[in-house]
């Protein structure tokens, strides 16, 4: 028990956030640019693990891509230019958030389309012809039922 605190401290010492950005990767000198590069890394898909960003991934290729992003940004490219560089080689898939463009119209448009279809369906239902009026026989039946219900309510409950 007396070592508990020491043990906890030991655990805390090793419980640093797991981060894939390697120690041998040199951050950019300009902190603002480094922050921009880091933001971009979060948007770039690791092509080996596919559902991770290269910022998260330990894969070799992810590391290479991080190095390239920093290199290009140090050379004066802005994030759009770096993105274009990556898309040229790996296609739109390399971006975790695909761009809005003609070829991605179905992807981005489908939620709107479904919403419109549902709205149209609901409107059509509303506009459907009202039910035909009750016949004399049905009116009489309804009246009898309502009266019976009223009489029922007036009676004291036992």
């Amino acid at each position: 028990m007396k070592h508990l605190l020491a043990r906890l401290m030991l655990v805390a010492a090793f419980a640093l956030p797991a981060h894939a950005v390697d120690v041998d990767e040199v951050p950019l000198d300009d902190p603002a640019k480094e922050a921009e590069a880091r933001d971009l890394m979060k948007e770039v898909r690791c092509l080996v693990c596919q559902n991770q960003s290269i910022e998260d991934s330990d894969a070799d290729l992810a590391r290479d891509l991080r190095v390239i992003i920093r290199e290009r940004m140090a050379a004066g490219d802005d994030t759009d230019q770096v993105k274009a560089y990556l898309v040229e080689r790996y296609g739109d898939w390399v971006l975790l958030k695909p761009p809005v463009a003609g070829r991605t119209l179905i992807l981005w448009g489908s939620p709107v389309l479904i919403l419109l279809l549902v709205a149209a369906g609901l409107l059509l239902r509303r506009r459907a012809a009202p039910p035909p009026p009750l016949s004399a026989e049905e009116e009489a039946k309804l009246k009898a039922l309502l009266e019976a219900a009223e009489a029922d309510e007036k009676e004291p409950r036992g």
């Binding site: 092509l47 080996v48 070799d60 290729l61 290479d64 891509l65 390239i68 080689r89 790996y90 296609g91």
Partner: peptide
């Protein structure tokens, strides 16, 4: 050796 050519070719593995 560096894998740079691989990136130019869009190779993922």
């Amino acid at each position: 050796e560096s894998g740079r050519a691989g990136i130019e070719w869009g190779v993922s593995g």
